[in-house]
Design a binder for these strands. Structure first.
Lengths: 353, 353
DNA sequence: ACAAATATGCTCAATATGAGTATATTTGTG
DNA sequence: CACAAATATACTCATATTGAGCATATTTGT
């Protein structure tokens, strides 16, 4: 039996979701971990006899004796690991569920981690860590609608989820699940809400469709001494279409982060922390589109940001390759004190290019 | 010298901000603590030789060995203490700054607390605790604009803050502070953004204008062995107009919560968790107004919620005292799956009755 | 000179919003 | 009972915002 942990203490860690947009791709910083060798003991647990994904979010322990605040601890550690200076930083969420790491059953200090989102401009990457940039949508292929509605949504996700929900025995639970499905993925005519990234991820997990769900089922079985659950090979095939699996609950954390950033875009001018100090309106639009996973109407986008006073022309023009050269703009900081709601709104549901 | 805390462990606590609206007053649950006797050892520290406010937010330790998730731990403990069943629950923020409790300087386990907001319908109050309801605006008199712009804003807050900011020596800091002031409190023509409760609180704290700031200055002086800082008696007078002081950083936590609820109102239908299952449109409007601290235009509010499909008529009417009886409505849950953004929008800046 | 590519400007209908006015249905009072 | 006071509900109207598209401008490359 594991050690009792009656003193209620816990280990606090920091998880950083560091976001940048380059080449119209939203990227996050991940760490490719050598298989079966987690960075910190706290992340390891005992039973290591199952395959886990080597892809993790950057994680660092928080040492209360060294840092006055969580945010300071984060800055320090990210700088050491990546050499990045962080721009906009926001606390995301505190994750402490026991099933975060299925190996950590009762007993043992609980790993509590506080997630932070940081938006950064550049991508130099230096420092002690082995961090690298990876396309967000590698983890959430169904979230990128810029080239139209992703095939995986209609061909795999919706039908399989609907089938799963229909077969839930208990009536109340079935109905509430079906309602959640229609909210998260839209039904027929209804719309796809780009913010609901976490809700979609959670449904896919509950339905056992993605890698983490299959992995966790195995682990739980191993821990309780049951025989390996038979996972239909079809399920394993399906999971391959549903993005890269991450370690522990890291993909859930990432889903939370993407949802948060998308929501924030609409009512606070956070995009500008991802851009250089001057930029063309196309640059700006492409970054918004990349994060939102949508195409926007160009002329209306321009109207929104220019007439809305979010940006102002610098008088200079971009040196470019084809077409009429675009004017360079800069962020108008004054807007912060003028308009309560000032974001570069993603559309409610419209997506036309 | 205090004990070193090199193992990075920390004590995790839960802070609950439990909100209900009754008689057009938004209320939160607080605990009146006997002076100088905090509920948990973790909250006490050593140096107790200064006056602190007896008003605290409900706080409970989180025991990882007993509860699978933070939220479950919260539910359990709130039920024991108050007998309340929680409706909507949302994680607010994780607070871990060292200066949360100025007594806890270097060393000693850090108290990290995870704040949760819960919206509840009823106010019976039973159970083991000595919790009671208190008007939110007792703590933030400047946030309630329902009877027009509060006098304290123009007579005390704005002039004193402006004076304070003007006297900041360092140029960059002065300018950025002045910008923050104008964002948070509006300047002249500019608007008051009802969401920015935390930003306003923080500026008042930094300017040393509210009770907590005065208290913390004393404590810091006592700890570093300096003589009691001389606080102008005028400052103490001022603080009296700026709401009830709370223990530790609890008022900061509360400010975060109120800002969050106000923001949420606009784009998610959370109000309905504060209302009985059927209600008149006036009931609904009064609750929104109470939380938002604004008056809304009645006819337009009706149009918004009825035409927007947020509510549907039940066919029954209210039994009432004066005037034409109002129809009873209920929340239309379907709206969740229909419209991505469905809240009962507070106005951007308009406030007319 | 002209096609291709891009930027920028403008129009127009559909909705949404702010601010009223008008009407309806109650209770309480003389 | 008539009528004032109080409240609910319906409608109007000007203005602002949004979605969608067409038209024009300024480049580069052939």
């Amino acid at each position: 039996m594991p050690i009792k942990n009656a003193d209620q203490s816990a280990v606090i860690g920091l998880n950083a979701i560091i976001v940048a947009v380059t080449d119209e791709v939203p990227r996050i910083l991940i760490v490719q971990r050598a298989a079966h060798s987690l960075a910190t003991p706290a992340q390891r647990g005992e039973a290591d006899s199952y395959e886990d994904s080597p892809v993790t979010l950057p994680f660092g322990p928080f040492d209360p004796s060294q840092h006055r605040t969580l945010e300071l601890g984060l800055h320090k550690w990210v700088e050491q690991q990546t050499g990045l200076g962080l721009g906009y930083v926001e606390q995301l969420y505190t994750f402490a569920d026991r099933h975060r790491d299925p190996r950590e059953q009762a007993g043992g200090p609980r790993l509590v981690s506080v997630g932070y989102i940081a938006l950064v401009r550049q991508v130099p990457l230096s420092g002690a860590g082995e961090a690298e940039w990876q396309n967000c949508y590698d983890f959430f292929p169904w979230e990128d609608w810029r080239e139209g509605r992703p095939k995986v949504v209609d061909e795999i996700i919706r039908p399989k989820l609907q089938l799963w929900a229909k077969n839930i025995d208990e009536k109340n639970e079935r109905e509430s699940t079906q309602e959640r499905l229609s909210i998260a993925f839209g039904t027929g005519t209804a719309s796809w809400d780009f913010d609901r990234v976490l809700e979609r991820y959670e449904l896919l997990y509950e339905a056992g469709m993605i890698g983490e769900a299959i992995r966790d089922a195995k682990i739980r079985a191993a821990i309780s001494g049951l025989s390996e659950p038979q996972v239909a090979s079809e399920a394993i095939e399906t999971a391959k279409f549903l993005g890269t699996t991450m370690a522990l609950d890291n993909r859930r954390v990432l889903a939370t982060a993407i949802g948060r950033v998308r929501g924030k875009l609409k009512y606070r001018p956070v995009v500008f922390d991802l851009l250089p100090s001057t930029f063309t309106l196309l640059n700006l639009q492409l970054v918004v589109e990349a994060l939102g996973g949508v195409r926007l109407h160009k002329q209306n986008f321009r109207r929104l940001v220019v007439n809305g006073g979010l940006v102002e022309p610098t008088g200079q023009r971009d040196i470019q390759s084809r077409g009429r050269p675009a004017e360079l703009f800069r962020f108008r900081r004054e807007v912060l004190s003028e308009r309560p709601v000032s974001g570069v709104g993603l559309p409610s549901l419209r997506t036309i290019g």
